[in-house]
Design a protein around this nucleic acid. Structure first.
Lengths: 245, 245
DNA sequence: GAGTGGTCTAGACCACGCA
DNA sequence: GCGTGGTCTAGACCACTCT
């Protein structure tokens, strides 16, 4: 290990526990430790890296706070996986007005491969003329259509995605288990828009009906953009529920 | 101090640092330490409470993570105040599509005192027939109306609020400095709705135009509901920007 | 019982702000 | 130079899980 000594006046100096944190992130994001896998024990890491257990512990604390890893007392420390119940709604905020969480299902979807637009290249950090896959689908809850979405991902990260139909409902667990891509954050822009003809047809609504439009850029463990998703929600009996803190 | 000893099998046992955390929260929420005031040093608190400095530190860490207090290296630890730049946009997520944060100003507002509705009593944890103040106002950015909002607060918490006109733009700093009420979290429900007649008139939009409707319950330091706010946004040139993590 | 994470302590030294 | 928070260490003991 080449952890940087204290006392260094070099401008790029970071505290030891942050250096350890960065090292753990890189081991996770490069796949050296895979989701659901156990990390070495705190003591083992401390010995390997030549720091105290307390320093390793502080690094792990910060990664737990970022939902990147999980601790299980008495067992060990594990790379977080998205397949668990608790993570299902982390990036899906639609709720029935009664309070029950909604997880709409998908009846069919289309997927095509095409070159990325200039906007997509910018938002996904792609080189010009890279290919993307685009998925379009309508999803239903309680037997009624509730949202229409368009999903764009870089083809390079998801080889053969178009041969995997039917795609599962919850794509992020699928991204992780099948392609090693872990979504760990998102930026969203919400607007109210009027339904265009296609959306109105798919959602069985009047043209011009108000729809909640959400444009999401999903980020991976290292903060890189992974997916661009535009969703239009019918919010007659549902809402988008968030907490600010 | 009556911190609970370790080894206790009592079901309500909490780790020492959490007990210290709870104690600090209660001192803040009861006003024993007021916003912008310095807490005693970590060492002084450790001596007072009969625990080690590390334990006090861990308690303070968690409160810093909750935005309840701030550390300033070399100076001390301070109760967070909302008047600072950085906190201005914590609960105000409207952004111009170009990326610049929007902070619409208010030209006039109305305020009335009336008994709370049943729904308001439920959402604000009030006794039946408690009084509330209701504020209604339209706010403008770049000389155009962008939102219409209705704000309901318990009269008991804000004595004489109706004599304080004109109310400032950013109410939360006003709540804190004038009434000792600190907003420290919020639950929001977002929907797309069609503009009704009043909203259309106030926002210079067509009746039926799509509006982003946000219903917010604002919470204080101890998690108690403080304010009920319904806002309708025109999102033609702006959006509601959030980060999920 | 062995091994893991969780809590708590005591103490050293560094970096910063201020008088 | 002093007092504050920030980093780092070393070690003790507790609580949990599995064998």
């Amino acid at each position: 290990m080449e952890l940087q000594e204290r006392h260094s006046d070099r401008p790029g100096f970071r505290p030891l526990y942050q250096q350890v944190r960065d090292l753990l992130v890189s081991r996770i994001s490069t796949g050296a430790w895979r989701p659901a896998e156990a990390l070495p024990s705190e003591q083992a890491l401390a010995v390997e890296l030549g720091v105290s257990q307390g320093t390793v512990r502080k690094a792990i604390d910060s990664l737990v706070a970022e939902n990147l890893i999980e601790r299980r007392q008495g067992k060990g420390t594990y790379v977080a996986q998205h397949t668990r119940e608790s993570a299902q709604f982390r990036f899906f905020k639609l709720t029935h007005d009664g309070g029950e969480r909604a997880l709409p299902s998908c009846r069919q979807s289309t997927i095509i491969r095409r070159p990325a637009s200039a906007e997509e290249c910018a938002k996904l950090d792609l080189r010009r003329r890279s290919d993307v896959y685009q998925i379009a689908r309508t999803r239903y809850a309680r037997n009624k259509p509730v949202l229409r979405e368009s999903i764009v991902v870089p083809a390079a990260l998801f080889p053969g995605l178009d041969t995997r139909q039917p795609l599962p409902n919850t794509l992020y667990t699928f991204y992780q288990s099948e392609f090693g891509v872990s979504v760990n954050g998102a930026r969203e822009r919400l607007k109210a828009v009027a339904a265009d003809k296609e959306a109105a047809r798919e959602l069985l609504a009047a043209p011009g009906a108000p729809l909640l439009s959400v444009e999401r850029v999903a980020l991976d463990v290292a903060g890189r953009p992974i997916e661009l998703r535009r969703t239009a929600f019918l919010t007659e009996n549902t809402h988008y529920g968030i907490e600010l803190s």
